[in-house]
Design a protein around this nucleic acid. Structure first.
Lengths: 240, 240
DNA sequence: CGGCTGGTTGACGAGCGTCAACGAGCGTGG
DNA sequence: CCACGCTCGTTGACGCTCGTCAACCAGCCG
């Protein structure tokens, strides 16, 4: 299961790559780009595949081309918490540390483009733009993490669920028509994942979702497709 | 109350400054250092003073010379959560964003050395070392934030309290003799702050502390001085 | 058909929040 | 000097929310 990041490796034809103008590739000049491309590997991972284990050595970084990756931490007795969700075209990896402090797992089908750790780090030395881009992503992740800390520490179960749905609606909306007051998206997480994300149990997640459905704030189809007819009503349940 | 960061401003004699060889100052070369020093201001803030408000414009960055700063976020109905604690010689500020998304407040007496925002940002453009240093701090803060997310989402009240005490014990130990199995430190936070940090109420904090005292795992003097005779026993209560 | 995974629903109870009373320390003002 | 008000912390009684345990259903695959 481990090491899925490396199987299915095919030479990358960057010219046609959807990530060429996004993520870290977009900051590189032509020469750097060619150098990085030479060592890159495109790979796919099935939903649930482990990409990186806690306390495991990191030897490759990657950018997410499509799909959702969840970052988790686990206590010794098995209690688990999702501490980050990453979407395309996020950068995956923790510079300046040789061992991972968390697990990375594919939450959906995921396509990655990975590079050797030292190639990226060398390039970071040479290219302030690259480092700046990564710094910005880290700052954004930090802002997000702090937003979630408020959610985990201070919101009730139903506010947590509503907040999560709002977040997914926003993520879906950004690639969709903007300024809409309704939303429709596929949940990228299972009930168990949602529970691990919100610091709840699957039963509580399930109950809160059916409550939102009974209150006609959302429709659920096939357990995964969510339709929000009125985002304001959902937002009103999110706390903030 | 606001703007305490600017009062008490005195010219900084950097030569004798305890922060000269720590924090961002340590990464600057002589020329840069002189330039930054010219615009720096040393200032003190009393415990409880607001350093920066949510949605307020940021016009100065700072390094913490002594004391503890708490970063908080507040929901519209007043529920509050501490999302970060910063100690000397941390850098205070959020580059690449003009408005703050959180409140910064002095948790203890605090001494800061502040610089104009644009001076620091100009210097970040010129000095990759400076940017790298800030990037590293952001990554460390991100690691910490994720650690706390596990705590907030998955730990019980007593585990939360124990974890917090362990964290303070470590912070105190790093400046003290190392490798000790006991600890003794002043709580830099009030019961209300602890509650806001752990996502609990002050009553629960109080109850859990007296439980640890009754179980002889800690001694409490004057409500603030904590003595931990056996760190392993405390650690065993912290979960992980 | 049976087993398995993922989700829902119900009954029950523990943990922690809420509300309230109370004590200690401390500065203020008479 | 004591009375007082205030803040901060502790303790108790009570109840709600959410976790626990269990049964059950739907879909899927062998």
């Amino acid at each position: 299961m481990r090491r899925d990041i490396q199987k299915d490796a095919v030479p990358v034809l960057c010219a046609s790559c959807e990530g060429r103008n996004k993520g870290i590739c977009s900051t590189l000049d032509c020469e750097q780009f060619v150098e990085l491309a030479r060592t890159s590997r495109k790979s796919a991972a099935a939903s649930g595949a482990a990409l990186l284990g806690e306390a495991e050595r990191i030897d490759r970084y990657a950018t997410i081309l499509s799909g959702v990756v969840k970052l988790t931490k686990t206590l010794s007795d098995g209690r688990q918490q999702i501490v980050g969700l990453q979407f395309a075209p996020d950068f995956l990896g923790r510079p300046y540390r040789s061992e991972s402090t968390l697990n990375a797992e594919a939450a959906t089908e995921v396509v990655l483009c990975s590079f050797p750790k030292d190639a990226v780090e060398r390039m970071m030395q040479e290219s302030p733009e690259l480092e700046r881009q990564l710094y910005r992503q880290a700052l954004d992740e930090l802002d997000e993490a702090r937003e979630w800390m408020v959610m985990l520490g201070r919101k009730t179960a139903s506010e947590k669920i509503a907040s999560l749905l709002v977040m997914f609606a926003r993520h879906a909306a950004s690639s969709d028509t903007t300024g809409r007051n309704s939303a429709r998206f596929d949940l990228p997480l299972s009930r168990a994942d949602i529970a691990d994300f919100l610091g709840l149990t699957i039963e509580t997640v399930s109950r809160q979702l059916t409550r939102l459905r009974n209150d006609k704030i959302i429709c659920i189809e096939n357990n995964r497709l969510i339709i929000v007819p009125d985002l304001r009503r959902l937002n009103a349940r999110a706390g903030n």
